[in-house]
């Protein structure tokens, strides 16, 4: 596999990490709560979408219902649970959202059972195939991007741009930024902090449902379908600096590419050392963990850290 092909595989993978990181840092940046139940909240939304699909046979309707259910779950979590435990330490928040993570997993098991459920592809696009001239691509193997990967990339781009525009051009977006920078300041100018927090929670979980429906055709719908991805999203957000949404997305993409390149390098290394029975894919998670540790050790505020505060 060429380096270019590794990058092409890494980009859509990284876009998924970035979307997960986007949802996480949207909630954390705004409300100061690290939502460890993020992946499982999204998972519940996907299960709900699956049920609506089974019932109505309409995929667009099912996905819309799943996203709406996710948004509702996010708002509910904020209104019912987070308002009550406001002012808790980071440690306390961790326990609360970890508890939610387990409760949601249990809930999914009770309602939908243990059998992995099939979820259809949102769209079926033909793959892109490039045959590059030998001067660029010496091994002559054409570069391939799967249709589903193209769709993921496009969607991630659209979502990121929508959020960027929302924060840049709308009054509510500005209010969200203000609230994330100074809660008292936000309240004295008349921003309703409760409404802003609910908005962050609702949209943060909704993004995770979108993400879940993207990966569901590959992973199938299971209670643990987004657990690993959450860890990756977490890394993306840490890497990018938690309070910067843009940083989370870029961090995710860098991470995805890095992971594929590292795997390529390890393949070469194992081949050279005749350790052919070692599979480089087994080391992908290690790469992620090394990135998280290195980031925290070298630049704990992330590569696109905000200048005036360090919430993490």
């Amino acid at each position: 596999m060429s380096i270019l092909q590794a990058i092409l595989l890494g980009l859509p993978q990284g876009a998924l990490y970035g979307l997960m990181g986007l949802g996480l840092s949207l909630i954390f940046g705004t409300t100061g709560v690290m939502n460890f139940a993020q992946g499982n909240s999204g998972m519940l939304g996907v299960f709900f979408a699956w049920s609506v699909l089974a019932w109505t046979k309409s995929l667009p309707l099912a996905i819309a219902a799943g996203i709406a259910a996710g948004a509702l779950l996010g708002v509910g979590t904020d209104r019912i649970l987070m308002k009550k435990v406001k002012g808790l330490t980071h440690g306390g928040m961790l326990i609360v959202t970890l508890g939610l993570l387990m409760a949601y997993e249990g809930l999914a098991l009770i309602v939908w059972g243990t059998e992995p459920l099939l979820f259809p592809d949102l769209v079926t696009l033909p793959p892109l195939i490039w045959t590059l001239p030998p001067s660029v691509n010496p091994d002559g193997i054409p570069l391939i991007v799967a249709g589903s990967d193209l769709f993921i990339l496009a969607l991630a781009l659209v979502i990121s741009l929508l959020f960027a525009a929302f924060f840049k051009f709308t009054k509510i977006g500005l209010a969200l930024k203000a609230r994330s920078q100074d809660e008292v300041g936000a309240r004295v100018v008349g921003i309703s902090v409760g409404a802003v927090d609910s908005l962050a929670w609702g949209s943060g979980v909704a993004i995770c449902v979108v993400l879940g429906t993207l990966v569901a055709p590959k992973t199938m719908v299971t209670p643990g379908m987004l657990t690993t991805l959450q860890l990756y999203g977490f890394t993306a957000a840490v890497f990018g600096g938690f309070s910067s949404l843009f940083g989370a997305v870029v961090g995710g993409v860098i991470l995805g590419v890095l992971e594929k390149l590292a795997s390529l390098g390890l393949d070469a290394l194992f081949a050279a050392t005749h350790a052919a029975n070692v599979n480089s894919a087994d080391f992908q998670l290690s790469v992620i963990l090394i990135v998280i540790i290195a980031t925290l050790a070298i630049r704990p505020t992330g590569i696109f850290a905000s200048r005036f505060k360090g919430k993490v």
Binding site: A178, V188, I191, R307
Partner: peptide, 24 residues
């Protein structure tokens, strides 16, 4: 209220801070 400790929004521009004052 103009609160104790100023409580401005440090990462926003001066103008954005002022615009937020007119939020309501």
């Amino acid at each position: 209220l103009c609160p104790e400790g100023r409580r401005i929004f440090p990462e926003l521009s001066v103008e954005e801070n002022l615009r937020l004052g007119a939020f309501r």
